[in-house]
Amino acid sequence: MTSASSASATPTARRPMKYRETRRLIRTYSRSFSSMVGLVIVALFLLIAAFGPLLAPYPEDAYGAVDFSAKLLPPSPEHWFGTDQVGSDILSRVLIGARTTLQIGLTVTGIAILIGVPLGMIAGMTSGWLPEAIMRVTDIFLSIPGLILAIAIVGALGPGIGNAMVALALVWWPGYVRLVQAKTLSQRNETYVDAARALGAGPLRVVFVHVLPNCLSPIIVKASMDMGLAILAAASLGFLGLGAQPPYPEWGAMVSTGRSYLPDWWWCTLFPGLAIYFTVLGFNLMGDGLRDVLDPRQR
């Protein structure tokens, strides 16, 4: 965090120093082949999520268009990934499903950060019964396999993509509490925090202006990893029939439907699964790369 501490020296020195640091980060990141592969996959995924309906050859197939004359066709130039049991083009459904997947990943990770980071800051910065209570609750949540807990919550709320997202977010936040609490604990007695206090900064200012920026890089790294994991978990719920319901174009649910058509109509299962794999792989590789750049000690 050299940029933050040296930036306040003079306003004119600020911009060049900051850009130099950014350039250094970009250079380090781009030197790693696997990180770049991750970045390319994630960029492609974002493009598909943004323009999926325009790229899809048969966009109407994503939302339950039925054409029994074209059902279960093998991959061909007209249908690259083949067609499913109601004659929908699987490529179109995979492309349009990217948007659902992105939405799930962002929602779950976003809510988890919104719940977990403030709780982690409170647990790390204050003392007394409150941080103790926060950490105990966090420990208990972390001691239950997340997928099972999410299934239990969906069981109570009822199946559906919205409830699946809520359930995953509710099991995802404790990781952020643990991370942010550990980081703030290590920061709160640093000289720069004491200096800010001595200069008259109130507790909120200390937290938001001084401590939080120094906790950002591990949060970013974890968020990138969690995008992949949340996508995987949501696909798992979809596969179990607890997330998105067919014919909604969600990859996990597509694998689940395609399952009944194995082995003869393998393409119904293969391609949605590959889409999940590559997306998660992309976010994981990008997360690894970001960690090497932003947080080298955490390796």
């Binding site: 696997s34 399952r259 699964g273």
Partner: peptide, 27 residues
């Protein structure tokens, strides 16, 4: 080995199971 490691973390278990079943058991 690292390729195995990154893939292992990204493969959906249920899909991997289906693919193993399809190829190694059925085919």
């Amino acid at each position: 080995i690292r390729l195995i490691a990154v893939s292992g973390a990204a493969l959906p278990m249920f899909w991997l199971g289906l693919m193993l079943q399809w190829y190694l058991a059925l085919e």
